[in-house]
Design a binder for these strands. Structure first.
Lengths: 192, 192
DNA sequence: TCGATTGTCTAGCGGTGCTAGGATCGGGTC
DNA sequence: GACCCGATCCTAGCACCGCTAGACAATCGA
């Protein structure tokens, strides 16, 4: 059995290598540069090997998205844990979210801009995605205000952050006053 | 001279035909289906003709985006003009924005998601884009609140709407409670 | 009527995601 | 030790992409 286990382990290692390489390449040169040929060359296997692990490029993007969601959840919880009081927590959350988007643009795209074939906001949504939303909900639920559903408030706040993140990075919004926009968002949306 | 004028007019007509066809095809089957081959076939010319009008596919996307921006500005002003009072105006504006995004998803993508080679938030930004932002500013500036720069407030509000529009359409947000989210956004962000 | 200019097309380049089918290599069995 | 069989991997190729060089035809001015 040990032989089969070793082979399984090696296969899993190679799957992780593919995902890590795709992510690295995407962060370095953008997702357009992540072609199956280049990816295969970087992992030093031929193209068809990719398809023995993933159905296609979309599924590789999805795998990067899941990895990113798990990391984002950790980053958000770390940021809010270090903050005292509801307002400080929400500010820290918003800043951490935008910082994650800025520092990991390719991963952020995989999560929220590209088609990774993942289900969102449903029962069969993958756990890491649910958990990332839960991390938002933990800090935002407490400032939703009376009579406002915490989930709905979280969705709205998240959408606002997402809009800031994407429009800024796409050059649609000048980056200078991001801090002011975030403060405006927190002070107006959150009930403290 | 009349002959040259006729030729120029015919060229301009064909340019418009290309843009209109690209838009139509994108709305019908998505931007992925808008290939230069299919586009050329639909306008009943060969591919190189496209390149005598536009530098490439990106520039065609940009042309669709400009057309869309002009229409959006009209739609937003029409919606706000029919509303009485600041709150009703902002609600009407937000609804009109989201409705435009929902009814013209391909055009919306050309404007804000895809790369159309256009400059945003700069001096050399094309007039239709500036004007669409101005249409937002006209209704949002009056509810920015004391001490808050109208432009910055408009940017923030716009980002929130953009987040709602894109996340909802990409299936990241369930479409059921869009109305509630919009009201939450208006009631919290706008100073009435 | 002839040459030049303009307009358009055919054909092709290097790239893409993806896959069929053959080669190779290893372990298990006689 | 020889053989077979299954797993693993690669070569080669499909249809498509954006884009362009160069041939060809039509039209204009002289």
């Amino acid at each position: 059995m040990s032989l089969q286990e070793r082979k399984q382990r090696e296969r899993a290692d190679r799957a992780r290598l593919i995902v890590a390489t795709a992510r690295e390449l995407a962060e370095q040169q953008g997702w357009d540069a992540v072609t199956t040929r280049r990816l295969a060359e970087r992992i030093e296997y031929s193209q068809p090997v990719l398809y023995s692990h993933f159905r296609g490029k979309r599924e590789i993007i999805g795998a990067v998205a899941l990895e990113g969601a798990a990391e984002m959840a950790v980053a958000l919880r770390a940021a809010t844990a270090a903050a005292d009081g509801p307002r400080a927590r929400v500010v820290a959350l918003a800043r951490a979210y935008l910082e994650f988007a800025e520092r990991n643009p390719a991963v952020y795209d995989a999560m929220f801009q590209l088609d990774g074939g993942l289900a969102f906001a449903r029962e069969d949504t993958p756990e890491p995605l649910k958990d990332a939303f839960a991390a938002l909900l933990e800090s935002l639920g407490e400032v939703a205000g009376d009579g406002v559903h915490p989930g709905l408030f979280t969705e709205t706040f998240w959408a606002a952050l997402h809009g800031l993140a994407t429009l800024t990075r796409a050059g649609r919004l000048p980056p200078e006053h991001t801090g002011h926009r975030v403060e405006l968002l927190v002070d107006r949306l959150a009930v403290l």
